[in-house]
Design a protein around this nucleic acid. Sequence first.
DNA 1: CAATCCCGTCACAATCGCGTCACATCACTG
DNA 2: CAGTGATGTGACGCGATTGTGACGGGATTG
Lengths: 224, 224
Amino acid sequence: MDVVNIFLTSELGESLEDFVHDHRRFTFDRLGPEGPRRLVEGPMWAFIDWVLPDLAGLELCRRLRADPRTADAHVTMVLEEDDPEDRRRALRAGADDYVVGPLTRTAVLDRVLALQSRASERNATRRFELGALVIDMAALQARWDGEPIVLRPNEFRLLRFFAENPNRVLTRDDLINGLGKREPPIDERTVDVWIGRLRRSIKAAGGGNPLRTVRSLGYVFDLG
Amino acid sequence: MDVVNIFLTSELGESLEDFVHDHRRFTFDRLGPEGPRRLVEGPMWAFIDWVLPDLAGLELCRRLRADPRTADAHVTMVLEEDDPEDRRRALRAGADDYVVGPLTRTAVLDRVLALQSRASERNATRRFELGALVIDMAALQARWDGEPIVLRPNEFRLLRFFAENPNRVLTRDDLINGLGKREPPIDERTVDVWIGRLRRSIKAAGGGNPLRTVRSLGYVFDLG
DNA sequence: CAATCCCGTCACAATCGCGTCACATCACTG
DNA sequence: CAGTGATGTGACGCGATTGTGACGGGATTG
């Protein structure tokens, strides 16, 4: 089952965190004027308030549509009142949908669950492009200069996590947590093996080595 | 461009007939307690009033969902007032969506057009050309480099579903649902057998293996 | 109504993934 | 340049996942 990623412009997300039982299926994040703060795998559901402190909701909606990483999110505009003209404008700005607020926790979840089954029909791809490296999250496939890289699941997760945090030293502990492997406890040295395997796989596809070792600290994904 | 079929429980349809210019793109029909009066091809958009003279709107919604001919219609419930409890019940009854009425002509069209663009990717193609693979939906035949592939009905459906969702990891669950086999429940491992048989049939026609296994997730049709 | 075909399930074999270990190699220090 | 600690990596083995031949019931065909 896919993870469902829900983005909200209000603080409702925190409240939903507690409300939801199954955290393997849902993630919540606050949607700021710069878009989502982290990239995710799986369908994205954005709920945008009509009025925001620093930006018009419509403008945020347009930005999401313009950014290839979020272009295929399902965007719901949250109207303050049921003004037909506003509805129209929301849909024109690229929203898929609108509701009349204020938003409640159950409204968000019900809506997502009801529409979710339809979402599998969409095959827009979410992708990272980091120099020669392209990561296609929908196909779970990475390429170097167009050449497919054969990656095992753990290698793919690792590469994805690096791609989400480029130019930043990640400790072995960061990586273990980033891949969600708290249980059972993983030996830190195992990370070295992960890195080695990932490097080898990239090399086998004719790629370079974007992973730099930072002695006694961790590893960095070098970009640019 | 596909025809858009709009079903309404009110007499708004007659009014829309006049309102709309392009009658090649739209059909309108009155939705009675027995469901639609005629069957149509292409996407179906139903708008159901919350209260109906002879039947509760919710019950009609459930009936549409239960009937395989209309199960995949996009159902919008038209609420009289914006009661959160009603919204919830609408979605639980299988509705995809709700609006607060009364329904206007422009609301119907705006809504359909906005949501339609998402769905349109699905049914438009009668012929897929995916690298060496060509699928002729009209002739129900597939070819690899011009060589006919002998496929059993289920294999054809499977291949078609993959072709509709290329470069996208499909879980076993996606595939079971995609082939419309919810009843009786299908063992997920059966999908592996489907894949094996499809691969063998493609190979028998001299084809390659476009189906990549994504361990512990599902399968992808690799394109490019 | 017999012959054939199709397909879902099962069981077993084959393969794969990955965490760990052990040893080789490397990088920094003085 | 020796010493020390950190990193690279081949090998191993367990457990999980996938591939597939065989079987049988139900549908389809002639």
